[in-house]
Design a protein around this nucleic acid. Structure first.
Length: 239
DNA sequence: GCCAACGTTGGC
DNA sequence: GCCAACGTTGGC
């Protein structure tokens, strides 16, 4: 999925136009596209710690303010893989090597994942998850340093994620900028998260509804505060 | 490399 | 609007 940007010649540095977070949205189309009916089954505990909040859930269709999440998990591939001739490898070490240890998270081409990126706020933290590799799992923590703005790779014909259906006037895809914060104290493998998830399904523990398992293919996903804290607590355990 | 899960597309 | 075919994700 995403190929967080490496190459940006200019986009790299945090931008220039302030927070361009939302381009004009013409109401009619735009966020909508979540087309995934189930978007809300995780009813239980959201909470946003941060701010906002409000709105309880369920607003029928239109937009609805959903619950505010404040923690995320973002997947990226740490091993080389070529897509249309371009290596999409981008592990946490690649992020650390960027100027200012910051990169734009480009290449996301799934509406639900995109919409979650549009909900991200500066300062929020996310787990950097290594996918499609020898040892999948959580490698570190990153933070959002720039809110959603148009993903330039959608307009680049040579980019593996070029989208001929998108226009500059009404860009379809967004990205955020993220900065390396730290490695987790130890690598937290998927196998361990899965074992916890399974145990919690039986016991009602904090990972019982973790999106990593309930929507396995989603590359950008929210975590409740409780999920985030629990995963962090695993750092302290001897593996 | 296999293949299950699941999102997207397009015919009707 | 339904749904089968198809394509992609990503663990194993």
């Amino acid at each position: 999925m995403s190929r967080p940007g490496k190459k940006r010649s200019r986009a790299t540095l945090p931008d220039k136009e302030g927070s361009a977070a939302k381009f004009t949205k013409s109401k009619t189309q735009e966020e909508e596209e979540s087309m995934i009916p189930a978007a809300k089954e995780r009813n239980s505990k959201p909470v946003g710690s941060g701010t906002g909040k409000t709105t309880k859930e369920t607003c029928p269709s239109a937009q609805g303010s959903k619950q505010a999440y404040s923690h995320w998990l973002m997947k990226s591939e740490p091993e080389s893989r070529f897509e249309k001739g371009v290596d999409v490898k981008f592990g946490i070490e690649d992020l650390k090597a960027q100027p200012n240890q910051t990169a734009c998270w480009d290449g996301v081409r799934n509406y639900q994942a995109r919409n979650f990126m549009r909900d991200m706020k500066v300062g929020q933290e996310a787990f950097f998850y290594h996918s499609n590799c020898k040892e999948p799992g959580i490698a570190g923590i990153i933070k959002i340093v720039k809110e959603a703005y148009p993903d330039h790779t959608q307009f680049d014909k040579k980019d593996p994620h070029y989208d001929s259906s998108s226009t500059k006037e009404n860009p379809k895809w967004s990205m955020v900028d993220v900065q390396f914060e730290r490695m987790t104290k130890r690598f937290i493998p998927l196998s361990e998260l899965k074992a916890q998830h399974q145990a919690h399904r039986a016991s009602g523990g904090p990972l019982k509804d973790m999106t990593l398992f309930t929507r396995q293919r989603l590359s950008v996903q929210p975590l409740t505060d409780e999920e985030f804290e629990f995963v962090l607590s695993l750092e302290e355990k001897p593996s």
